[in-house]
């Protein structure tokens, strides 16, 4: 199971990298989103994947699931949600103001 998810994370990272390297704003934002999702999966795998164990320690249960990675992912998702929302609004405003969504044309000039 870990191997399978590792491959999925790899795919998400490579697609994300490909999208970031393009020069359209929306693609870059989607690429960042995909990378963040890949990382969330990675945190989950790093905590160890198990089936059937409750996230509680007790004397009767022999196996338990580590709950911390899930708490971390939850926090990371919320933060990522806020940042992506901000980035989308920002890119819309930038597009309106500059009339282009091509990052190559947003390099800025020496004299302006």
């Amino acid at each position: 199971m870990e191997t399978l998810i590792a491959i999925v994370i790899g795919i998400l990272f490579s697609i994300g990298t490909y999208l970031i390297l393009s020069n359209q704003m929306l693609r870059i934002i989607l690429g960042l989103s995909l990378i963040s999702h890949g990382i969330n999966l990675m945190i989950m795998v790093m905590g160890g994947l198990k089936t059937g164990g409750p996230p509680l320690l007790s004397e009767t249960f022999q196996s338990f699931t580590d709950a911390i990675p899930q708490a971390l992912i939850l926090t990371a998702i919320v933060i990522n949600f806020a940042v992506t929302a901000f980035l989308l609004v920002l890119s819309y405003r930038t597009y309106k103001k500059h009339g282009t969504d091509d990052m190559n044309q947003l390099r800025g000039h020496e004299h302006e």
Binding site: I20, M25, I28, L32, I35, S36, I39, M42, I43, M46, G47, I68, P69, L72, A76, V83, F86, L87, L90, S91, R93, T94, K97, H98, M103, L106, G108, E112
Partner: peptide, 30 residues
Amino acid sequence: KIQLRETMKYVIINVLSSAFFLVGIAYIYS
């Protein structure tokens, strides 16, 4: 205009570095 343009770059680079921060945290935790 200049603020929006520069903020775009600033946000993108920082989101990416925060993403790698999380990767580091995941490794440390494991």
